[in-house]
Structures are given as C-alpha cells and as structure tokens.
C-alpha cells in the first residue's frame, strides 16, 4: 500500500449519471448535536441514483454521523439532535407523515462490523421481508432470499448452508450476508458505513466489486477511511473535515485537482 495512489478510474459498464435528473436524496443545512456538542455544521449534499457517493475525511470528521442521519439511525442515540432538511424523493424524512420504519425500509444500511443476527443464513435475509410483509407465501420468500443472496454474490457459497447460523460464515461472507439482508427489502438507497474496515484485502476486493454492481439498481453512499477505496468505487466524493463538508465533486476531480487546500492535504496524505 506504499505505492502512490493510482487515480485511474475503472471504466464501468454502468449507465452514466444523468446529472439533470432530480436527486434521490438531498440534504440542506444539516446540523447535528450530541448533547451540547455540535458534530456537524451546515452540510449540503445530493445523493443520486446509479451513483456511488463516497464520504471521506479524517476520523471524527462527522462522516459517520452524517450517513446515520440519512436513515435516521441517530434516533437510536439518546441525546442526538438533527437540524436542517433531508429529503427523499422530495419528501422531508423528518416529516411526521413519513414513518421512520418505512424510511429505513427504503434507505437500507450496512455497518462497519458485520452484524448478522444469531440466526440461520436464511432467517437473516428473510427477516426484513417478513416484518415488512413483502412475501405472500413461503415460495415467494424463498425467491426473495435467493435473489438477494445472488445479488450479494453469496449464493454460490451458501446455497448448501442456508440453515447454518449466519455467525458461522467468514468475516467477508458475513458482510455480504448483511448486504443481502439490506437489499432483501428492496431499498432505494444503501448506506455503507466503512463496510470493509473489518475485512482482509481479498474480502474487501470482493465487496468493492459488489458495490460497483449494486450501483446499477441503487443509490449508494459509502463512508470510507481509505482514499484508494473511494477512488476505486465512487463516482462522487465529499470531503469532511471537523464536522464541515469542505468540498465535493466528481471523484476524479477531488483526487486530481482539489480546490480546497485541506482536501489537497488529505488526499495527498499530508494529514489524516
């Protein structure tokens, strides 16, 4: 990893982003407080379909805080407060008419550490469709589970082990299981909070490929510590520093000709 970062972006077969199409999600003036302490200041960003948006920045910069705002996971934390507007298809996600439960079904999330439920592989994936009532019959549920595992690139490895506990899989498989679990409820946006930080390089490569494939159907937001990863998987990059969104733009531009000198310092490895 000591060699200079190669900023050659992999050509992909994915459709080009239609920049003029309305954003899937958009955040305007988002502030977050934990008790008295302000963790995020005035963040504006748009999330588009068929595009991977990477959030980068040094640790403690607020990128994880921000991604947790997008599906209101901050509600779980007792004294967290969110200000500003975040919309999903033009509707404010804090709108009392919009249910947090259905919001999270539309905006799924994959966490830093794989967190499969202590149930079988099958039950892990079936859990979401079950609680949301997406399958009318056992057969339909089987189909959803199979399709989700296939899309997560895990089917081949677990087809024979559906009844084994999810925790018996390897770390990388567990993380793909969590991705399958997230896509089983057919979300529109998938949030990934450093999904590869607990994995070895081979498993990481596997997940990165997967992310690139998932881009065809979803809007993806990924928080990452590794600039190489952001460069490899994303089309759009936002750089956070000390709770502020310093700069955002097409990934290529952020990594090759950043406008802000803090961004430049970070991507060239002078701090971070």
């Amino acid at each position: 990893m000591n060699q200079p970062i190669a900023f050659t972006l992999k050509p992909t077969s994915a459709p080009a982003v239609a920049v003029d199409s309305p954003p899937k999600m958009s955040a305007r003036g988002v502030d977050v407080f934990y008790g008295e302490k302000q963790a995020l200041f005035d963040v504006d960003i748009d999330i588009h379909r068929n595009r991977v948006t990477a959030l980068i920045g040094p640790s403690g910069c607020g990128k994880s805080t921000f991604i947790r705002c997008l599906n209101r996971m901050n509600d779980v934390i007792a004294d967290a407060r969110v200000r500003g507007s975040i919309t999903l298809d033009g509707q404010d996600i804090h709108d009392p008419g919009l249910d947090v439960v259905s919001l999270r079904a539309r905006v799924g999330m994959v966490f830093q550490k794989p967190n499969p439920f202590p149930k079988s592989v099958y039950e892990n994936v079936a859990y979401g469709p079950r609680i949301h009532g997406l399958a009318a019959s056992r057969g339909e549920l089987d189909d959803i589970v199979r399709a989700s595992l296939e899309r997560a690139g895990l089917w081949g490895e677990v087809a024979e082990r559906l009844n084994e506990p999810g925790t018996s899989l390897s770390g990388g498989q567990q993380q793909r299981l969590c991705i399958a679990r997230a896509i089983a409820v057919d979300p529109e946006v998938i949030l990934m909070d450093e999904p590869c930080s607990a994995l070895d390089p081979i498993a990481t490569a596997r997940i990165e490929e997967l992310i690139d494939e998932l881009r065809l159907n979803f809007a993806i937001v990924i928080v990452t510590h590794s600039m190489q990863q952001a460069a490899r998987v994303s089309q759009h990059t936002a750089f956070f520093h000390l709770g502020k969104l310093v700069e955002q733009g097409p990934t290529e531009q952020i990594f090759t000709s950043p406008r802000d000198e803090r961004t430049q310092g970070y991507v060239t490895g002078r701090f971070g």
Partner: peptide, 20 residues
C-alpha cells in the same frame, strides 16, 4: 450492532426486541 442491524432494515422497536 444487532439492534442497529434490525432498525436499519426498518424494524420497529418491538419487532427488534421480539425477533432479534
């Protein structure tokens, strides 16, 4: 993290408690 995983799929609190 297990609770978070369940919430992130859109489970309610009681569903998370009873099923996870």
């Amino acid at each position: 993290t297990l609770r978070d995983g369940s919430y992130a799929i859109g489970a309610t609190k009681s569903e998370t408690i009873v099923r996870v």
